[in-house]
Computed example of a mutant assay.
Amino acid sequence: MLDKILERYQPFQPVVLLDPEIDRLLLMDFTERNTSLTPEIIDNTGLFSNYVDQLLKDHECTFGIGGYAEHRTIYSRNDHFSTAEEPRGFHLAIDIWGPTGTHVFAPMDGTVHSFRFNDAHGDYGATIILQHQLEGYTFHTLYGHLSLKDLEGLHEGMRVAAGQLIAHFGDTTENGHWPPHLHFQIIIDMEGKQGDYPGVCRYSQREQYLANCPDPDLILQLMP
């Protein structure tokens, strides 16, 4: 149902500003098919950041993009995703990889649902979740790996306007120790969670999570 509602309201305000005359997007693959992404690179935040930067430079792209419904290998880098018999590796969002400080905007009117500094290694780091309503239907958008300063002055229920600057790509010290990027996810039911919601699930649970987390490109409209 939400898919059809979002389709009726396209296009939304851009979440990340792109100049079609200058900025190019690189579709990035973080599955086992990408043999250039070695365990040595994955396990070292500095090497991983350099890898992403060099990949974008080599392809003359400003941003990298991808990841929705992608079964990834990069989550082997820490225990945050491996605390159960079946590790989590199925990605539920679209990632936009780019420079630290890149501006992040609200795609539509909403309110601040919750926010938190999820500081475990490999987690979201600074995180903001907005709540939206369209045609009486309530849903949420999650913005992960932000700058810590973006949480200052926020309060739950705070109104946010479409096109409003809400955040920036955080650096590795505040974004969960990842190369700078935005994790953008649509969530229908927050299931009582505040400031956090799984962005990666176990492969065996993918159907139930995909039902609650529709394709973010319904809002972004950036995927090729």
Rank of each mutant, 00 (worst) to 15 (best):
L92S: 01
G157N: 10
R72A: 06
M108C: 12
I74W: 04
H155K: 11
I41S: 01
D123G: 00
N78W: 05
F90N: 02
I42V: 14
D43T: 08
D109W: 05
D95V: 07
L154W: 09
N78C: 15
H80F: 14
Y143F: 15
R116K: 12
R33K: 14
E156Q: 13
E135F: 11
G136M: 10
V16P: 00
I65Q: 00
L92T: 00
M108D: 13
L142S: 08
T111W: 10
E32S: 13
I41A: 03
F115W: 10
H132M: 05
H145M: 06
N50P: 09
F139P: 00
R77Y: 13
G67A: 06
A69Q: 11
D79H: 05
D19C: 09
G136F: 10
I65E: 01
C61K: 07
T73G: 08
Q133A: 12
F117G: 06
E21S: 09
F81V: 05
L55R: 08
H132A: 02
D58S: 14
D43Q: 14
E21V: 09
L148G: 14
P87K: 00
C61I: 12
Y137M: 14
L142E: 03
G89F: 06
E135T: 02
T127Y: 04
V52L: 10
S36T: 14
L56D: 01
S36K: 11
L26D: 05
E21W: 01
R33E: 13
E86K: 03
D109L: 06
G144T: 02
K149M: 08
S82N: 14
H132D: 02
F105E: 05
A69I: 01
P99V: 05
V112H: 06
